[in-house]
């Protein structure tokens, strides 16, 4: 690999500028890269270590949402890296702490179909209460799918655990790829 590519000044400047604009935020954690098992071990240990929440339920909820988001990136991101003979999805997860809640944000490139599906499902999910979300989850579990993994139940589970609306934003990058950002609040 070209060493000059490792130290990307432009990227670092962008990230520092982003920090300057939001420096009141307490970013607990941010990771950009492949969501393979080796990195997931390090990240999950850090989440356990870094969070300041003492109540077990809250700690567990943060971890459970991380499991679902990381699995979504690993399986659905169109940006792949071959690790150990497997094509692993790449993306970014950030956890920010606010006074009364955490915010977990995931971002990854996605296919046009996935972007459309996630947008439609998030609108549907945000109109439902907890019992209705459970009903939707039951229906999705019972759907036949050939796709490996969670059959898109993860997003519903995130909504149920967080007890907050899910924000989904999509954007087309300069490279003409679609990027999907999913963010959710987790109450303290």
């Amino acid at each position: 690999m070209d060493e000059n590519k490792i130290v990307s000044t432009n990227q670092s400047i962008r990230e520092i500028q982003e920090f300057e604009e939001n420096k009141e935020q307490k970013v607990l954690f941010s990771y950009l890269g492949a969501f393979d098992e080796e990195h997931l071990i390090i990240i999950s240990n850090y989440i356990e270590f870094a969070q300041t929440v003492k109540r077990t339920t809250q700690r567990t909820n943060l971890f459970k949402i991380f499991v679902e988001m990381s699995q979504n990136i690993s399986q659905n991101s169109t940006l792949k890296k071959e690790i150990g003979g497997r094509n692993t999805g790449c993306g970014k997860i950030t956890i920010i702490e606010f006074d009364s809640y955490f915010k977990m944000i995931s971002c990854n490139p996605a296919t046009d179909n996935d972007v459309q599906t996630i947008k439609e499902r998030s609108i549907q999910m945000n109109s439902l209460n907890k019992e209705e979300l459970r009903g939707l989850k039951r229906a999705r579990i019972r759907e036949k799918t050939n796709k490996a993994g969670n059959g898109n139940i993860g997003l519903i589970k995130i909504a149920i655990i967080s007890e907050n609306k899910i924000e989904v934003k999509t954007e087309r990058g300069n490279n003409n790829k679609n990027y999907v950002t999913i963010s959710v609040k987790i109450n303290k």
Partner: peptide, 12 residues
């Protein structure tokens, strides 16, 4: 004690 959504489909 815990199963994720991917496992829940297979448990069903």
């Amino acid at each position: 004690s815990y199963f994720n959504t991917s496992s829940s489909k297979m448990l069903y």
